[in-house]
Nucleic acid binder design. Structure first.
Lengths: 233, 233
DNA sequence: TGTGACATATAAGTCTGACTTTTTGTTCTC
DNA sequence: GAGAACAAAAAGTCAGACTTATATGTCACA
């Protein structure tokens, strides 16, 4: 994905951000800009820019005469794509993955329902295309190809919902699905029932059946929750 | 709320951020750091820090030899609390309010269901306290007092869900509810049915009845959608 | 012993100017 | 007209001097 090393300050962020989210500097820890600048071998101005960005993510707070203090985890802006990526790459990856999957289970059914109302003909076409792609790659250890279509499918749903905030969750869902294939329990071919559900969702959206699209998508997300042993009933 | 004018760069952000989100500089517009620094009467270093923050919000992109270009709206990080505040204060406030209300309708029922499972005794107590506060202020034009308890109620639900991402939406919900009372259609006393629903949710959570808590909360959010003429059935 | 005012040290904040690097657009040549 | 060399423009980086807020320690006084 986006290799985010633009400029020296970006390079510093890629090192310091994960360290903070990983708990390497526990909340309350105090850092000093000058010391950090020395450690990363950059000028103070560059380090200041990095600190400003961390501050805008609510990861740290910069105060005069005190330094740069790490904020408590509860205040972090966990919706920031960068923060999400850092946490997914770090130690509390499982925890983050659970949070995101629960979020998916809340958002995606509603998004599917909205898509059934608002989706354009082109989006419906793209959706069925994705579903067919999933079917075509559902057997024979073609997990990567399957993943591509799976991600595309959910992206279309979120975009077609017409809600800008749902649309912005496309990257997050992509990250979760990719994580499931690459790191978690996805060694064999995907569950045939799940594949069928995707096809049915595409059909429901095309037919404009909002409640059916919502319900079917709910079944998909319930499956995702169960995969992570998050009980729903 | 948080008066975010910390430092010169914060002051610049409070002026430049809303201008961008309001579309004053349409996507594709090119700004130059030096010119901005002159206009805001700050040094280049301060302006650079401000630009870095805007960049981390995906509002702008800074490229050599070209300048600071405003990104297309679809790429903005609309989950950033700062961005949400700027947009709520600007011209597309109604649009933003709708997006957020739809998001609420997705998240809050699930959060309530989770709360019924995970809420501590203290949280249950706080919840019923909030509900009682709403009842006590539901008549006689005590809208401000009602709002305080309403906000507190939804915050407790989101926190008690045990999901860190839901918990972070507390501020957003607070902003939406406050907006409804202060700017939108809330001239008279709140709908008695809504008040009753809150009491019932508190009761369902205390009883550990997840599906009932979820369903009741769904009714609350459906009401919020209807207030904004967003049809659900 | 406690409390208030005052002094001091500290780290962030700010500004300026010089220099570097990347990238775009032009121009020159074949 | 295609491609290479060149020049200009804007961001990027750095170093150093200075300012400002503020936490903390000190000391007099009650």
């Amino acid at each position: 994905m986006t290799t985010r090393g633009r400029g020296l300050h970006g390079h510093v962020l890629e090192s310091l951000g994960p360290a903070i989210t990983a708990g390497e500097y526990p909340p309350g820890s105090v850092l000093r800009t000058d010391e950090l600048a020395q450690r990363f071998e950059v000028s103070r101005s560059v380090m200041r820019e990095a600190v400003r960005v961390l501050e805008s993510m609510y990861l740290v707070e910069s105060r005069r005469r005190v330094g740069v203090t790490v904020r408590p985890k509860a205040e972090w802006n966990v919706f920031d794509p960068q923060v999400i990526r850092w946490r997914l790459a770090g130690a509390d990856r499982p925890h983050q993955l659970r949070s995101l999957t629960v979020l998916r289970s809340a958002v995606e059914p509603i998004a599917a329902g909205l898509s059934a109302r608002h989706a354009t003909a082109a989006q419906c076409a793209e959706l069925t295309e994705c579903a067919l792609g999933m079917v075509a790659n559902s057997r024979g250890h073609k997990l990567e190809e399957y993943l591509v279509h799976d991600v595309a499918f959910h992206r279309v749903i979120l975009n077609a919902s017409g809600n800008e905030m749902f649309a912005r969750l496309g990257d997050v869902v992509a990250e979760v699905l990719a994580g499931r294939t690459h790191h978690e329990v996805m060694f064999e071919d995907p569950d045939p029932a799940a594949v069928t559900l995707h096809v049915q969702v595409a059909e429901a959206v095309r037919a404009g059946d909002a409640s059916r699209a919502e319900e079917l998508t709910r079944q998909i997300t319930v499956g995702a929750l169960q995969e992570l042993d998050i009980l729903a009933p």
